[in-house]
Design a protein around this nucleic acid. Structure first.
Lengths: 232, 232
DNA sequence: CGCGGCATTGACTCATTTCAAAGGTGGTGG
DNA sequence: CCACCACCTTTGAAATGAGTCAATGCCGCG
């Protein structure tokens, strides 16, 4: 259950290619990367365990969860290809990270080794700072979304955020996660997420192809915030 | 209005002492620090401006604000002595930081110079990573608070967080900020903050001395979350 | 084919927002 | 020294958005 079952050492052939071909931060650490192909829901790192690795999502997606005292799950970060995680000032992780879709690929780097390399390579040290700053920017953006008032605004911002971060063209976004995940990410109930999507759809702001594909029809309506929701 | 009016260069005497005597991260950068004593509400850095400095609060407190499209203000980070800010992956700040109480002291470090120093000093580079990770941990904690359901829980967590971060002993916390600031930090209305505090007071969980001093009477009640709020 | 997780919809309740007003507090200037 | 003013804080009453409970529909997978 815990830990990574199908680890592939960095020299192991087929996953090397993933790194070679795919652009991602920490290019210069490809030699150190331990690649893992994860199953749906597989734990990548666990709350309370020693924080001895840094990670980077190569493909797929991962959710960074905390279980609250009352049993509710909160997703504090959503990790897409190119996003790094596992940074903490403490000596253990404050969250659990799980792969979302089947086949999510994650690169793991032994923190100690990277830090030793960084000690000798200022350019690498700068890159690490940069990806840590990206993580900061991500959390700040998420705080802004959680700070929004209505659920409609939250869901709207969420769709826009996903569209941006997935670099989707054609105004179509493939959500990698379930409504439950979205709910725990936006700190609202599943039903509310569902209703918000239905609402946006009926108002002609988005279109749904299946449940996971969202086409953005009226970007401005999403951006401007939906305060005066029932207008129009 | 914008910018820092009373900058004191690092060699300027009386504020040197503040750095010499006060423990704070980036000790090794004392030489570079430009100290500033700020007025209430004074802007330290501004959303949209080039992100060419990193900062550290020495005394007092600062709020990291974003103005939303609808005019609402959101405080995404609350900065207390020892907290660093100004880190971003972009080339301009995504937020505005303002001093909260009169006389707040902030150290500013020219980013380019620090990075050059870090290139030559791996230990400094590690320290910078560490304080960036602390900023990450802070934002994660804040996301958890915003993810809480009831306002009572949010206010309760907030008080506990302040008590911890201010290292208050004797279960007494001096809030450095107004109810409005707390409201924008917790993403609830001022009235709700006020009501929550009144409620906690009447239930004997906290005591108020004046409006800004909170004494924690029943820590467990605050910690356990107030889900079943009107119980007891 | 049927099961289990995911998704949608409805009805009801209640916490929070909103609007409104009154009571404090500190600082400034007369 | 006092009075005034701006801002902060508290409280009340009303409206509404979101949570909860409950049921049904959907789909993919074994």
């Amino acid at each position: 259950m815990t830990g990574i079952s199908s680890s592939i050492s960095s020299g192991a052939g087929q996953y090397r290619k993933l790194l070679t071909h795919q652009p991602h931060p920490l290019k210069s650490l490809d030699q150190l990367a331990v690649m893992t192909v994860c199953h749906r829901g597989q734990e990548i790192c666990s709350q309370g365990r020693p924080a001895d690795h840094w990670y980077c999502v190569i493909s797929g997606a991962a959710r960074c969860c905390v279980i609250q005292l009352d049993g509710r799950r909160q997703i504090i970060d959503l990790l897409l290809p190119g996003d790094a995680f596992g940074f903490t000032a403490g000596d253990e992780y404050g969250y659990t990270v799980e792969a979302v879709p089947e086949g999510t690929v994650v690169a793991a780097y032994l923190r100690r080794r990277v830090e030793l390399l960084a000690d000798a390579d200022p350019q690498l040290a700068r890159e690490i700072r940069q990806i840590a700053f990206l993580a900061l920017d991500r959390l700040e953006a998420q705080l802004l979304i959680l700070g929004r008032i209505t659920a409609l605004e939250k869901v709207g911002s969420f769709i826009l955020e996903m569209a941006t971060r997935l670099c989707e063209r054609g105004n179509s976004v493939a959500l990698p996660m379930s409504r439950y995940d979205i709910a725990d990410y936006l700190a609202v109930s599943v039903e509310t997420v569902s209703r918000a999507l239905t609402d946006l759809k009926q108002r002609g702001v988005i279109k749904l192809s299946g449940t996971r594909i969202v086409r953005i029809v009226d970007r401005d309506a999403l951006e401007e915030g939906e305060r005066r929701a029932h207008a129009a």
